[in-house]
Design a protein around this nucleic acid. Structure first.
Lengths: 124, 124
DNA sequence: TAGCTTGTTCGATATTCGACGAACAACGAA
DNA sequence: TTCGTTGTTCGTCGAATATCGAACAAGCTA
């Protein structure tokens, strides 16, 4: 894909509380985190949100730079996961509390997974 | 004091997760919340932060508008409290987790209380 | 090699945010 | 009434953010 020379993923000790809070203060990004909350790895293209492709890319970058998600590249496509364990280690309970509140009021409900034409392993 | 016609305090049901997260994503504001974390009401003038008075007022307004703090006016001065109970009711565990993380890395350490020349009831 | 797919990056806007000093308003005190 | 105190609001600036469409780059595929 594009100029993604190598996505930077901050180490656990580099996670910054204000930066993580800021990353989690946008409805769309909260929606993305909710979609990833079950711990499963999701394909970039599986993610659906009511914004342009470049905007979605931007938000995923903010989450990645803050250390909230991890992006793995395989061939020409990307897979995203929530860094739940790292976050819980550094900021115990924070993500869980945020997710609980977000679910309760359906924050970022516009984000969801592609209808995933229920075939075999196509949807991972 | 100034044009503060009537500070608006959102009701519990009006609290917005993204807005609260945003309010808690600034180091200085996190510092203010930490200072108020013991539940005690603090005088505005007691609060010390390495910014201009107008900037401090701005940050306190952001916290108030988001529903994080409550401001009470008595005569010519203001008293601020953390709306811990309301926040916990709406977003269980969120503030606690944030405070735990903030304490661990001393986020907003530049904010503190005035040396409070240890007299009688002068402090509060 | 030529083309297709998949994300990223590049401008270009429009908006918001943090910070400051100065002016202002409300209240108590002299 | 005239001050002094206490915060808020205003106007301004530079930096950051959200969004979009277009261009681009890296890897499959034909």
């Amino acid at each position: 894909m594009g100029g993604m020379r190598r996505a930077h993923h901050p180490a656990i000790e580099e996670l910054s509380l204000p930066e993580v809070m800021a990353a989690l203060s946008d409805p769309l990004r909260i929606g993305l985190v909710r979609v990833l909350a079950d711990g499963a790895e999701r394909g970039w293209g599986e993610l659906r949100a009511p914004v342009a492709k470049s905007t979605l890319s931007h938000h995923l970058r903010v989450l990645r730079d803050a250390g909230v998600t991890r992006t793995r590249q395989e061939g020409t496509r990307c897979f995203v996961t929530l860094r739940r364990q790292d976050l819980d280690e550094r900021f115990p309970g924070l993500v869980g509390a945020m997710l609980g509140a977000a679910d309760a009021e359906d924050v970022g409900g516009g984000v969801h997974l592609a209808p995933c034409a229920g075939s075999t392993a196509a949807c991972r």
